[in-house]
Amino acid sequence: MLEIKDLYVRYGMIEAIKGISFEVRDGEIVTLIGSNGAGKTTTMHAISGLLKPASGSIMLDGVELTKTPNHKIVSMGLAQVPEGRRVFAQQTVEENLLLGAYARKDKDGIQKDLDHVYELFPRLLERKKQPAGTLSGGEQQMLAMARALMSRPKILLMDEPSMGLSPLLVKEIFHIIQDINKDGTTILLVEQNAKMALAIADRAYVLETGKISLEGTGEELSASEEVRKAYLGG
């Protein structure tokens, strides 16, 4: 579904991503783990078109995304839940969800999906008229996920969904990620919480200072000595 080849991303003179290649196949949960500054968010931004890569290719179902304007990428079936949630704080929960469906024109379908995400996240229904900025961190994370789902993506990119949340909430969020995947959405997950990410991932890549240092199934990497030392606390 998503194929990244020889991707290089630079910020001015600094090379943040130094030629990475990986793929996400239909129906998988793939995770990209790595420490702070490894280039995880940069990779996500390059895929969503927020950053222009210096070179390399990003193919979504055979279409080159690096040559697609960023506002057209959503309607091709790729949505992102950005790091730090980035909900529109001054707009209501429902307005945020409608913005998620901005690229769509099927009114009936949007209403149906609105009902669907409210079912998935009942707490958002209770708060639908509230400005998003007044929600708790966990609720904002749910809103960011629901908002991304409103575009009806084939593949959902999630950047650090567990950031700043209590362990209980993290568990809940990861359950929801698995549910979304079971409903047929492919998932690319970026996480510092490597333990949780590897537990639900079909396959995983380890990103280290802009390069992929290891890859394998979730189980293989959970068992790997190097990963245990560096990311799972021994």
């Binding site: 078109g49 506002h71 990428i73 959503v74 949505a79 992102q80 913005l99 998620g100 901005y102």
Partner: peptide, 11 residues
Amino acid sequence: EDKGAAALMGI
């Protein structure tokens, strides 16, 4: 509010 997030919505 946030141009980057707006672009992610397809705006």
